[in-house]
Design a protein around this nucleic acid. Structure first.
Length: 435
RNA sequence: GUGCCUGUAGUUUAGUGGUAAAACUUCGGCUUGUGGAGCCGAUAUCGAGAGUUCAAUUCUCUCCAGGCACCCCA
């Protein structure tokens, strides 16, 4: 079942995958690929366009956006210094690079909003666990350049649809609004003064947090702090009229789309660039009585562009999901990729004359986009059929000396062992019928 | 970053203070026009390093990796 250890099989222990990073192949590869294709398809239908940003960015892109005082920046970021002296970082998330690209390419001058999806590996130097890796994959949808509440709804809807298409059900959405700069300062004052009053009832870590990032105290897991949080001022009651309206509209859209949500007043998110809407999506734990697993999250980040040097604010909202956790969950549909196809046919050859011509047959299939696997390195029919069976390939094409002379092949259905001789010029037609 | 548990062939497991056994897999050979049967053979410096010891895979320590919990998060 589950491996409880991993030993290095190479002679040189330094030549092994780094901690928390793994190779994707076989089923795992197809599972990821299938998800990416489906997610892209959904995103495209909702009007999002693809973008790919570099794995490396200037360190400042993250330190000024995600913010000092956050664990991602302070503890988990992979940084490096180039030979030229630049300080770069492996991206720990997709949002800041996207906004950086938006600014860099002057996208403010295009019709707004701009809607992008992106996916790829992100890196966080955390301690690995099940469903937690140092290199993991996120799929993001973002809408930049509009502060309208319907964009929040659109982004959430798109993200939720992707999750549902991947097989998710019974997802729970926690949502909250943490306001904008109008209302946040008043709220923060109130919150800080409240915590100061109760500082002796807070957990030790949370007393530290009060100095650096007081909002984070709200989602503390410390039981003492949780008690204090019971009566802490909540951001929603401090929302200014505009934020209140915005939040109310977002909720209305969600209700209209039958997306069930739960307002969570303690939800603040670990990245400091969020404004107004924030949300997190959970799925039930795989374990008997484990905690729910967070598989997606996001929110609005109206000031991020400004922090990254944009002259004007670019209101934006995004949804990002953890692909590893989706693909490893028990409800995942195991979407099969369509571009990188799993072979359904095993090509079997028999005898010298047939072997000689077999690459030509494979080329015919390739031109017709029929993916195959083959056993050219083998000669015996029995062993080749055995391989086809072991790899669970549904059909076999048998090409022997007799067939080579007659310009035909035998198509064998591996499930019921029935087979039929098909002329080469009829083969493609015949194969189409099979599906 | 902290704590606990784990680490024997590709996989799953035996085993012992005197350098390791089995099954399956894989590869090679014999066989060979229909699901690989059968037979023969090959594959482990017992996660790495150090220490204790006449002797360590087996004891101790350190490190590494994996799992779990915390922190945090996807």
């Amino acid at each position: 079942m589950k491996k409880t250890h991993k030993n290095i099989k190479t002679k040189n222990k330094d030549i092994a995958s780094p901690k928390g990073m793994r190779d994707l192949m076989n089923e795992a590869y197809y599972n990821f690929q299938g998800f990416f294709e489906k997610a892209q398809e959904v995103a495209v239908y909702y009007g999002f366009k693809p973008i790919d940003t570099p794995l490396l960015e200037h360190r400042e892109t993250f330190t000024t956006s995600i913010g000092a005082g956050t664990d991602i920046v302070d503890k988990e970021m992979y940084t490096l210094k180039t030979k030229g002296g630049d300080h770069l970082a492996l991206r720990p998330e997709h949002t800041a690079p996207l906004v950086r690209a938006y600014i860099e390419h002057g996208m403010q001058n295009m019709p707004q909003p701009l809607m992008f999806y992106q996916y790829g590996p992100v890196f966080r130097h955390d301690n690995p666990q099940h469903g937690r890796y140092r290199q993991f994959w996120q799929f993001d949808v973002d809408a930049l350049g509009s502060e309208k509440s319907i964009m929040d709804a659109l982004v959430i809807k798109t993200g939720m649809t992707i999750l549902e298409e991947a097989g998710a059900h019974n997802l729970s959405v926690d949502i909250n609004s943490i306001g904008d700069k109008e209302c946040r300062s008043g709220y923060m004052r109130e919150l800080i003064s409240y915590y100061r009053k109760h500082i002796h009832d807070l957990g030790i870590i949370d007393r530290e947090r009060l100095k650096i990032n007081p909002l984070r105290i709200l989602d503390s897991k410390d039981p003492k702090t949780k008690e204090v949080n019971e009566n802490a001022p909540d951001s929603i009651s401090f929302l200014c009229a505009a934020c209140k309206k915005h939040f109310k509209e977002v909720l209305e859209y969600l209700e209209e789309m039958n997306i069930e949500y739960k307002i969570n007043k303690n939800l603040v998110r670990g990245l400091s660039y969020y404004t107004r809407t924030v949300f997190e999506v959970y799925t039930d734990s795989e374990e008997e009585n484990g905690l729910p697993v967070q598989i997606a999250s996001g929110g609005r980040y109206d000031y991020l562009a400004h922090q990254l040097g944009s002259k004007k604010d670019v209101p934006a909202v995004g949804f990002s999901m953890g692909v590893d956790r989706i693909v490893e969950s028990k409800w995942y549909k195991k979407l099969s990729p369509r571009i990188i196809k799993k072979p359904k046919i095993c090509f079997i050859q028999l005898g010298t004359e047939a072997k000689l011509k077999s690459l030509n047959i494979i080329e015919i299939l390739r031109k017709a986009h029929v993916p195959i696997t083959q056993s050219l390195s083998r000669d015996s029919l029995g062993s080749q059929l055995g391989i086809a069976e072991k790899l669970a390939i549904p059909y076999a094409i048998i090409f022997g000396v007799k067939e080579a002379l007659e310009n035909s092949v035998i198509v064998r259905d591996m499930s019921n062992r029935s087979q039929e001789t098909v002329k080469l010029n009829k083969l493609l037609e015949y194969l189409k019928e099979l599906k």
